[in-house]
Design a protein around this nucleic acid. Sequence first.
DNA 1: CACGAAGCGGAGATACCGCCTCCGCTGCGG
DNA 2: CCGCAGCGGAGGCGGTATCTCCGCTTCGTG
Lengths: 265, 265
Amino acid sequence: MTSRAEGAAVGDCRGERPLRRDAERNRQRILHAATEVFTQRGLDATLDDVARQAGVGVGTVYRRFPDKETLVAELFQDRIDAMVAVAEQACAAPDPWQALISYLEHAAASMAGDLGLRQLMMFATYGKDRVAYAREQMRPVVSKLVERAQAEGTLRQDFRPTDIPLIVFMLASAGEYAGSVQPDIWRRYLGLIIDGMRAARGGPSELPVPALSPGEIEQSMRAHGQRSSARRLKEMHVHSRFPADRASWRACALEKRNIGAIDRN
Amino acid sequence: MTSRAEGAAVGDCRGERPLRRDAERNRQRILHAATEVFTQRGLDATLDDVARQAGVGVGTVYRRFPDKETLVAELFQDRIDAMVAVAEQACAAPDPWQALISYLEHAAASMAGDLGLRQLMMFATYGKDRVAYAREQMRPVVSKLVERAQAEGTLRQDFRPTDIPLIVFMLASAGEYAGSVQPDIWRRYLGLIIDGMRAARGGPSELPVPALSPGEIEQSMRAHGQRSSARRLKEMHVHSRFPADRASWRACALEKRNIGAIDRN
DNA sequence: CACGAAGCGGAGATACCGCCTCCGCTGCGG
DNA sequence: CCGCAGCGGAGGCGGTATCTCCGCTTCGTG
């Protein structure tokens, strides 16, 4: 998780003295906690969450990092760079088809396993400039991956470079959805999509991951009911103090004007 | 949009008198507005939004519908039923492969074009019971669709019925993401996935929709930056009144502890 | 027409939540 | 041992969503 260098942490701001030992220890704890929290729960986790996870007070977090945005930027900078690096490495592979597949797999793996990175890369809030820059760097590389595979004849001709980010997005969505139950499920659908990307084939290749069971799908739904994505849907808490006979009125209103003829439960 | 019966609206709650004419008109306006708002912006739209769209005050909405949950339940009941009906109709088709494809297409079309329905079906908040019931009804039908196509030999053998909801979910995700720019883009990826689902084939079929341009992807990102899904990410507003020299401290903190070695902008 | 009642609007009460600050206390290290 | 860097976390602030309340409007009936 924490791929960041520990040694570089004794940084300097205009050559100021280093942090006190306990302070530096806390700083590392915060970095570690922030990585975990933002990766697992996404960028809408609060700095209070990070502080709790780190076992420190919020004040400590804010003393070290001026605000949430800065912390996020610092945490994700190298992960964004890694996305570009992965594309370039893939491009260096000799086999065009393998190169493309490998890139898809690495990109999807990064995004599916990291909700924060996914939000950063796909939604233009927060680190706009950094992400835009990374995207700009990736574009020609991805185009080359696609063109090479098409020139080779393995990739269907109507495939386009812009299909890549959307495919990755879809896979990451599936990964996020079922992540709590089967974090690797996206690989199954990558397999399916890859078979759809081939210019020609006899039979399907083997799907790498078994499908979810109905119960697992149920679990995924429930997992989403609680936090994150569908967060706002918890809006069903009852503010009212039930002044008179509100409950009965509800039942009445529900019965009345009932149009969808189906029996309710 | 409003497929609901207008005539049934003169309902009765213990045989009470019907609404005054203007009141009934407003009720219809609210229903219509709610359909539009929840469909387009999702279930996290507020009843104030609905009221504004309907051209009435919030009070009027709350006089007609005891709370948001009730309104949502009433609005989406028949759309949920429709999901089941679509599965059953598809099952009635003679050609097993066509039946399966047709179901996928209809299901994806419903969910991709209706953010509210998608949230309702995929996230277990809100209309739990209703949705669970619908799901339960659909399951055997979907299984049958899959089994028939596999028996026929057109569908790959390692495909599973539970792959269907996840594929639909992925397509709907793509549809939501790029919906403001190219609402039909999910059809392109359905085409890709369908080709991947075949037991065997010579060459790829034709993808039904052109890929997005890089600019369109950019637009999609931006569209999400504003509202809905990435709503919470707007947390970058600065509450502080910049007490002293906060800005400069920020710059310092950013430089200091800088680990991801890349140049910033 | 006139008048009672049904209906309306929307400001605002109430409740939450997330970011960030402030200040009295703690404990490090010279 | 003592000064000061560092700490914790209650709470200020701003924002937002749900739902209420009450003075005014409009309907429709006698």
